[in-house]
Amino acid sequence: MRYVVLLTETEPEAWDHATEAERQAVLVAHRAFDDEVARRGEVLGGRALDRSDTATTLRSVDGTWTVTDGPFAESAEQLGGFYVVDMPDLDAMIAAARLLPTGYTIEIRPVVDVPDY
C-alpha cells in the first residue's frame, strides 16, 4: 500500500532554537525511519518544507482564484514535511512512523489509485 506521511510540527520554531546535538538527534530519527521503511517497503519520495511564512495560498471564490500570503490555515502547528512510501500495511506503517522525531503530529493517509490517470 502507498501512503503519504504528513509531518506537522508542534513547535515550528523549535528547529531554529535547537542545539547542534538536538539537530543531530532529529536527523538520526529520520534516518531510522528511512531504514525501517526500506526494510519493509520503499521510500518513494519526501521532502522537508521551508517555513510556513514562505507559503503562498490560492483560494477559489466563485470560480476565480485569489492569491494570498501565508499557509492555508493559520495555526500554531504547521506542515513541516512529508514522505511518500510503499508499505505492506498500516501496522507496519505505524511502526515505522513511531521512529520519527517526537516533535511532530504525524498523519498517515493512504494514496488513492485513480484509474486511467
Binding site: P88, D91, I108, P110
Partner: peptide, 14 residues
C-alpha cells in the same frame, strides 16, 4: 480496507 489495517497477528512486542 482503505487504510490497509492488516488481517494479521503482529510480533510479540506489538
Amino acid at each position: 480496507a482503505a487504510t490497509g489495517v492488516p488481517f494479521a497477528v503482529p510480533g510479540p512486542d506489538d
